[in-house]
Amino acid sequence: MADKIKIAILLAGGCAGCEMSLVDMGDTLVNALEHLEVVFWAPTVADVKYKDLEEMPDQSIDVGFVDGMIRLSEQEHMCKVMRAKCKVLIAYGICAGLGSIPGMSNIHSAEELLKQGYMDTFSTDNPDGVLPQPEYTLDGKYDLTLPKFMSDVRVLDEIVDVDYYIGGCPPHPDFVAKAVQAIIAGNLPPKGSWITSGKAVCDVCKRNPRNKGKNREFVEHVYRTWEKAPEDDRCLLQQGILCFGPFTQGDCNASCLNVNMPCRGCGGPIPGVKDYGARAMSVIGSILGSEEAVKELAEKYPVLAKFYYRYSFAGSLLERKRKAVKGVK
């Protein structure tokens, strides 16, 4: 009987949805546990503490998963510990891979974010314009401290070398099951790759024009999802409802399309794409039929960065360089 594979899971700055997709695996996880030993899963399961992980010998864990983006210095520290202790480290979920939705906070300055949260929101009662502070003495006697946030959201590979990436917000439990089985079987692609079938969402979508032997046509108008009821059985993008299916990993089996909503790219880029938002502009640009259509797009989606880069802003080419030059602390 072969030794069990040791795995470790760390939740950094995420919403815990990726953890829930592991829990949602249900039976598959229970069966997989015959071959896996979870030596660390924090902070979700706390009987093995952070300091216990730090005391484990280096490279003693076979596979480590990190989900969530990184915004606090303790998260950064624990990611480095995970890298040291794990032979293979996986960025699990699109937050760890490319920053996901919280990554959009990098579009704004820290001052803007704090001001909105603590001063400008409708129900906020803040007559003296106070902001949460790293050190504060209450009533002249209670010293209270808060951690400092780093100035930017970072993704896992800006902190440590990452061996594999799994996309999804969160990764679909069925797909995670396949990935876990591949790990158990030792069946992994070259280091630095995304673990994916390689198919785009279009490839697995029932609405693909190719399924009817049709070619794609240029799109003359752009519709927001509330402006048009999509025709059944017809590609949404072809109807002018912008969908990111052509350049997004389709391991989700086109989940959103199954409920008649367009893909927004949580699966991450298909293989060969270096910058998700750039590819989005390229593909959408080439399927739109005129400059007028592009202008309509820009009017209806005025902040393109929050549209194309919704899941990938923090991990985009320009953003990475900006952070590397500035230094994030």
Partner: peptide
């Protein structure tokens, strides 16, 4: 703190 109330603008 993640700042959703700000970056949802736009």
């Amino acid at each position: 703190f993640r700042g959703y109330e700000k970056f949802l603008q736009g």
